[in-house]
Computed example of a mutant assay.
Amino acid sequence: MIESRKRKVWALQILNPKLSVETVEVVQLAVGEIHSAALTHDNQILTWGVNDEGTLGRDTTVESKKTPIDATSDNGEEDDEDDDEVELNLKEATPLPVDSSHFPDGTVFTQLTATDSATFALTSKGLVYGWGTFRDNNGTTRFSPKSTIQRAPALIPDVKDVIKLVPGAQHVWALISNGTFFSWGNNEQNQLGRCMISRIHEFPWLGSNNFGQTGIFQSAGQSDAVIPYPTPVPSLGKGLGIVSVIGGKDHSLALNEQGQWLAWGRIDNKALGIIAKDIPTSDVIFDTYKKPRILKVPTPISGVVGKVVFAAAGTDHSFAITQDGRAYSWGFNAQHQVGHGNEEKDEVEQPTQLKNKHVSGKMLVSAAAGDQFSIVVGLHGPQTNGVH
């Protein structure tokens, strides 16, 4: 684990030299709360971040003294004299491969996904491997009936013919080839919804609904706002042409056939990408103090120029990637997770294009968002003045 001695916040987008396209060539990313994983073109799984709960799937024990972090770099925020110092475990901080001996010979990976404290890998044969743990609100950990923390990749039993994995904060859904879902993990808020569903085009949702993030607004804003079973979402009816849905903590986004993103859920954390005062009062659920709290109608997000082809939602912030390779971001920005280094405010209310020497003019293709950090991915291009 990274021990707290001198904490550093990166305010600008920084090119990661450990993930160079010449030596690594990442094809997919997955981001948890404080760890990351990357699938490479040659079928390796690289992991890095905090490994206290086995999220990296490899041994990161070090016997030698940890390396102090250089807190004098000019790529981030100015140092705060009150900041703590840190020392760095290089086995955690460096993207390194998960040992392939944990998987049968010939295994080909097609997707990685990450919850807050676990990582899962889907194979071309529809099998799922996982490592890490699930953590409840009391801090209790449990990966399976037989283990609290799974520190090496293990095959998830009784789950096969999987075509896609969808993560929550402490649970996972697996879409099966016949159109049904399996789910496992923490079920404190009934987020697993053990009833299977088959009509996935109706976008059934389940789980915590305190901000209407499921798109079902009957109980939104109430303390018992839980959707206990998979339920079709009327607000995302077929007339909208919805082709994809993603979710943050208290907000959600939906992509339609025209490449336009719709948002709904919590208003006051600025995660929607919509200016609160511009929302019609008829579309809002107000709290007991008459303040706008929840956007109850999927509403188009403006400010993104071009057709959106990819999006990612973090805890309270989001990214949109356009067809021409530009990235826009918005939401909670206290740790600069939105990626705008010249933005001093804690929230970026509207979609704002990422611009700096590492991303401007590049063809960006995807993004991944965690709790307090984010990652964007671009196509490799020729160098100009030493910069790709």
Rank of each mutant, 00 (worst) to 15 (best):
F143Y: 02
L354S: 09
N138K: 13
A271V: 03
T214A: 01
P68R: 07
D70W: 02
S318P: 00
Q111F: 01
T107W: 04
G193H: 05
L253G: 11
A152N: 08
I149F: 03
T231G: 01
S183G: 12
L90G: 03
S329I: 06
Y229W: 10
V338P: 09
Y289S: 13
D287S: 03
S64N: 08
K307Q: 13
L364Y: 01
R7Y: 14
F103S: 06
I216C: 05
V243H: 08
L175H: 12
I294W: 02
P351A: 11
K66C: 09
F310D: 11
T148D: 15
Q218G: 01
N190M: 11
V387Y: 05
V309R: 06
G381P: 00
K164H: 14
I176F: 06
S235E: 15
K355L: 12
R266V: 02
D287K: 05
T281K: 15
Q189T: 14
P280R: 13
E85H: 13
E343P: 03
R7D: 14
P204S: 09
G168H: 03
I274M: 00
G179R: 10
S4R: 15
A121P: 04
N385G: 02
L39N: 03
L253I: 12
K8H: 12
Q150M: 04
K146G: 11
W184E: 01
I267R: 08
P97Y: 05
V365S: 09
D82L: 01
W48D: 07
D105V: 11
S64I: 08
V308A: 12
T67W: 03
